[in-house]
């Protein structure tokens, strides 16, 4: 599996090699190659793998952690971390349930409310990190527990169902594509994930937010001394992470047609894993949205493929752990060479 990407690299000679050798690009090529290799391996190992329904299943299971990972990418590029995305997602789902089911608000308003919940949590984390100078790990650990507790308190520890508004479940489970091309039933959740990725990618590479995001992660002091309001932009970035987290809350609530207050813990680690596999450096300054998307896909292809090969769930977790180790170690090796 490790040799394959190199062989691919060798074929792309000439001018392109220079471009590919740039660290960020190379990391993406490696991650993408690993994804292809994984898909090939599973396709040859089981005829059940490369079926339309299975691929759709993989994409659907990527959507929620994928959107969380998109948000996490922003914070991680600053050199920070957000441990609260799992439970803030749950809190957003619960609040959406409160808005739609308990208060009877229209679905679009409920969705906006859910996303705002995530945004507010992100904003608070950002204020704790930027203004109160609490280390991101601690600030978001606190936020993780606060959100977890609030989700349980507000819901009364019981799931909130969206049975009164069947439209809401369409947000994830319905297929907008199926209506245009019958039979091509890609769930909306997947489409939303990819649209979110495109928006995230534009934010990161084309806007002032993205520029300061990288600048902060690369050398915060230099950025501050250049007259950039570092604290303000940090809060903006944590809020962006919160918005993506809120969106993930909507997706999971819609997919389960309910807000499950006990769900959510552990999602943050899967999101971080996807970001890291995608080549974003935990020390900040480097990373891409495309990488994160690939990282998220690698995680779910791996889980799905192993399940099809009847590898017990416990062992799947072990394999995922090893893959994270390999991805990060490959990154360290390459950096040492450069």
């Amino acid at each position: 599996m490790k040799m394959q990407p190199k062989a691919e690299m060798a074929q792309l000679g000439g001018k392109q090699t220079a471009l590919l050798l740039k660290p960020g690009v190379l990391q993406q090529v490696l991650a993408f190659a690993s994804l292809i290799v994984l898909i090939l391996v599973f396709t040859f190992s089981s005829s059940n793998f490369f079926q339309f329904s299975n691929i759709v299943g993989i994409l659907l299971s990527t959507a929620v952690t994928g959107v969380l990972a998109l948000g996490s990418t922003f914070v991680i590029i600053t050199g920070g971390i957000d441990l609260s995305v799992g439970t803030v997602m749950t809190l957003s789902a619960v609040m959406t349930g409160v808005f739609i089911t308990y208060w009877g608000l229209p679905v679009p308003l409920g969705i906006v409310g859910g996303i705002l919940t995530g945004a507010v949590c992100g904003l608070l984390s950002g204020v704790m990190v930027a203004r109160l100078k609490i280390p991101p790990f601690i600030a978001t650990l606190a936020m993780m527990m606060i959100a977890k507790g609030l989700a349980l308190v507000i819901s009364g520890t019981k799931p909130i169902y969206f049975n009164d508004d069947p439209v809401f479940s369409e947000v994830s489970q319905g297929s907008f594509f199926d209506e245009i091309i019958p039979g091509f039933a890609i769930p909306n959740a997947v489409v939303i994930f990819f649209i979110a990725a495109i928006i995230g990618s534009i934010l990161l590479s084309r806007t002032i937010v993205g520029r300061y995001n990288f600048a902060l992660g690369s050398n915060e002091e230099a950025t501050r001394l250049s007259g950039v309001n570092v604290n303000y932009w940090k809060i903006v970035i944590y809020t962006i992470t919160g918005i993506f987290t809120g969106l993930a809350g909507i997706l999971i609530a819609s997919r389960l047609n309910s807000a499950q207050p006990a769900l959510g813990s552990g999602y943050e680690l899967e999101a971080i894993a996807a970001v890291v596999i995608g080549g974003t450096s935990l020390s900040g300054g480097k990373g891409t949205i495309v990488g994160t998307v690939i990282g998220a896909l690698i995680m779910s292809v791996l889980t799905n493929g192993l399940r099809i090969l009847s590898v017990p769930q416990e062992w799947q977790t072990v394999v995922v752990g090893i893959v994270i180790l390999l991805a990060v170690y490959a990154d360290i090796l390459r950096r040492r060479k450069a």
Partner: peptide, 27 residues
């Protein structure tokens, strides 16, 4: 030196004073 190593030469020189267009959001 006080530079952001992951940014390019141009990005470093104009950090904090980036020329922007559309809504002052896009670079």
């Amino acid at each position: 030196l006080n530079l952001a190593p992951d940014l390019t030469v141009a990005q470093n020189i104009y950090i904090g004073r980036e020329p922007r267009r559309a809504l002052r959001l896009f670079l």
